[in-house]
C-alpha cells in the first residue's frame, strides 16, 4: 500500500453517525502528502471523530456508522476487502495522553514489529534505534532501553509513542492533541519533531492551540458542528479566512 499520489487521502461526502446522532456532515477534503494538516474547531465539532475515521478507529465504537468514502492511495478504506490491520500499520496514531505499554522502552517500540513477525534480533535493534533517533528520543534513553517506559517523563513518553508509531514505517501519522498534556518545553520538542517528520510522513493533527496550528501546519481545516467550514493553506486561514465563522473562531470571538 505504498503510494506516491500527491493527494494521498481523499475524503468524499463523508457522513458519520453515532447511533441516531449525526457527527459528521458531507465532508469533502483532499489531504496532501508530506504536509502537516491541522484540524481545528471548538470542542465537539467532530475533528477527533474525523481524525479517527481515517484509520478506522471508529470501528471500535458500537453503533458508529459511516457513509461516503475515504480513499487512501487510491483505495476506499471502508471498502470490502480492506485489511484494517494493514491500514493502521500505514496510518499510525498518537493520542492526547501518552500511552506507553507497561514494558521496557525497547519493547514498546519493538512491540509492533514483533506483532508483524519480525524475529531477527539485529533487525529489531536496528529498527528500534532508528525509530528512537527519528523521534528525537534516542540520546535521552540510549543507556536505559531496558527500563520501564513508565519511568519516562510525559514529554519523553509522548515521543516514545511517536517512535512506536514510526517504527512500523507508516505513511501517515494521525495525532490527536499530542501536546495538550505536555509542558511548554516538551511541546516545543514535539513541534520540532513534527517539522522533521513531515519530510517523510503525511501528518494530520488535531489541536486546540491556534498558535501551534500556525507554527507547524501547512494546511488547516476548520470544523464546526460536524461540518468542514473551511480548508485552506494555514497562512490564508490565519490571515484572510473566507468565512466569518472561521474568523470568529481563530480570533477567539467564540468557541
Amino acid at each position: 500500500m505504498n503510494c506516491s499520489i500527491e493527494k494521498n487521502i481523499i475524503v468524499e461526502n463523508l457522513n458519520l453517525y453515532y447511533g441516531t446522532k449525526q457527527a459528521l456532515f458531507n465532508i469533502d477534503m483532499e489531504i496532501p502528502r508530506n504536509k502537516v494538516t491541522a484540524l481545528i474547531g471548538p470542542s465537539g465539532c467532530g475533528k477527533s471523530t474525523f481524525l479517527r475515521s481515517i484509520n478506522r478507529m471508529n470501528d471500535l465504537i458500537p453503533k458508529c456508522r459511516i457513509d461516503g468514502s475515504i480513499t487512501y492511495c487510491g483505495e476506499n478504506i471502508y471498502g470490502q476487502g480492506m485489511d484494517v490491520i494493514d491500514l493502521r500499520r500505514k496510518v499510525g496514531m498518537v493520542f492526547q495522553k501518552p500511552n506507553p505499554f507497561p514494558m521496557s522502552i525497547f519493547e514498546n517500540v519493538a512491540y509492533g514489529l514483533r506483532c508483524q513477525g519480525v524475529k531477527d534480533k539485529i533487525e529489531l535493534q536496528k529498527t528500534v534505534k532508528k525509530a528512537l533517533v527519528d523521534a528525537a528520543l534516542y540520546d535521552e534513553v540510549k543507556d536505559r532501553l531496558k527500563e520501564n517506559a513508565l519511568s519516562l517523563s510525559g514529554g519523553q513518553q509522548q515521543r516514545l509513542c511517536i517512535a512506536r508509531a514510526i517504527a512500523l514505517s507508516p505513511d501517515v501519522i494521525l495525532m490527536d492533541e499530542p501536546t495538550s498534556a505536555l509542558d511548554p518545553i516538551a511541546t516545543a520538542k514535539i513541534e520540532d519533531l513534527i517539522n522533521e517528520l513531515k519530510k517523510d510522513y503525511t501528518i494530520i493533527i488535531v489541536t486546540h492551540n491556534m498558535q501551534q496550528a500556525l507554527r507547524i501546519s501547512d494546511f488547516t481545516a476548520f470544523f464546526l458542528m460536524g461540518e468542514l467550514m473551511e480548508f485552506d493553506e494555514t497562512s490564508k486561514i490565519f490571515s484572510h479566512p473566507k468565512h466569518q465563522k472561521t474568523e470568529d473562531y481563530i480570533t477567539g470571538r467564540f468557541g
Binding site: 491556534m210 498558535q211 490565519f238 490571515s239 484572510h240 479566512p241 474568523e247 481563530i250 480570533t251 477567539g252
Partner: peptide, 8 residues
C-alpha cells in the same frame, strides 16, 4: 497578551 491573528 492576546496573540492576535487575521484582521486583529
Amino acid at each position: 497578551k492576546e496573540q492576535p491573528v487575521a484582521k486583529d
